Amino acid sequence: MCTERPPCNNGVLVENQLKKLKLIQADLNRINKFPVKTIQILDGDFIDCVETHLQLAFDHPFFKGKKPLGPPERPYNQSHFGEVETEMFQLWSMSGEFCPEGTVPVRRTTEKDMLRASSVQRFGRKVRRDSLGKGHEYAVGLVSGGQYYGAQASMNVWKPRVSYRNEFSLSQMWLVSGSFPHDLNTIEAGWQVDPELYGDNNPRLFTYWTSDAYQATGCYNLLCPGFVQTNRRIAIGAAIAPTSSYNGAQFDISLLVRKDPKNGNWWLEFGSGVMVGYWPAFLFTHLQSHATTIQFGGEVVNSRAWGFHTATEMGSGHFAGEGFQKASYFRNLKVMNWDNSLIPLSNLKVVADHPNCYNIQPRMNRVWGNYFYYRGPGRNVKCP
């Protein structure tokens, strides 16, 4: 029998820590597949080249014994320029090494990654918001009320300051159907700075999905059976470089998510028609048919540490009114209709939850079509 309280407490702590480490190791063994080749990156990441049909997505029971599908036909009003723009936009590709044919690049998950997570069980997942989106703030452009089969946009990439480890800053597009808080289906893609997930403040290409409003389904990137990677030159979750600079050079990425009309899978394309991979139709309920809302823009987590609004920046950290080379932007916004053709937006609505913290201003011209500037610094005189 233990009579000394501190040693007993220490023993319980040690036992709990050992259980946690065992749970983490089991998850790592599940997530990290045996690589054909490994590439070490200057930022400390390891990129594992995993055989395409052995990636984590194929642990899903629906995929048992199957292989990745080929890409769908291109929309008739969109040109295909081949695999340009895929090299030299991520730090890992600057080494000059790529994954061999028949494999895909997967950012290795480490014990440190999982120890940073607020919950081992929720690692790789968004924290579920309440119906008011408490703790999450947005500046977005959106269209809704139609039937959408894809969305396209270009967004410039920045390196926003994130104040606390449990906060993030991202720019993305959402394809949405269903309702919160029960059966919301989303497909999400863009770039994000998330110190808790990645361990640094680099902007990274990311994807996300859920079919039950962020409850039990879905995850970031390739951290659960879901998104199927098919491209061997683009690593989801890897850092993006270069990034835009204030009053200087601007660097943007173009993304397109569209539904394959033949089998219902949703494909992610980068740049000028480079296929990255797809979300299988069976992951979803409402999105098996179409999206009913498309959103473009920014999101931050405001933890209100110390009782103040966070100073986490959205994008460049400068308000929309400062314009080009200073504010962040989304340009060439388009949606895909029922006949697989991309059309410019005609009814864009803009919304900012807290415009004194992060704001948005829509614009239009012949070169950029429908576009908007957005972002902000977070805490300031008008945003205490």
Rank of each mutant, 00 (worst) to 15 (best):
M1D: 09
I31T: 07
F34Y: 06
I47G: 08
F58M: 10
K67N: 12
P72E: 08
E73H: 08
H80Y: 13
F81K: 10
E83V: 09
V104A: 06
T110H: 09
E111W: 02
R116E: 05
R122F: 14
S144D: 13
G145R: 07
A151I: 11
V157Q: 04
P160G: 07
V162A: 04
S169E: 07
S171L: 05
S171T: 00
Q172L: 02
Q172F: 00
M173Q: 15
W174S: 01
V176Y: 04
G178S: 10
G178H: 11
P181D: 14
I187Q: 00
G190L: 00
Y198P: 04
D200Y: 01
N202D: 12
P203C: 06
R204D: 01
S211L: 01
R233H: 12
A235I: 02
A238Q: 03
A241I: 14
P261M: 04
G277T: 06
F284V: 03
Q288D: 03
H290I: 15
T293G: 00
G298S: 03
N302P: 04
S316T: 04
S316P: 07
F319W: 13
F330C: 02
R331P: 01
N332M: 08
L333Q: 01
W338P: 00
C357R: 07
R375I: 01
P377C: 00
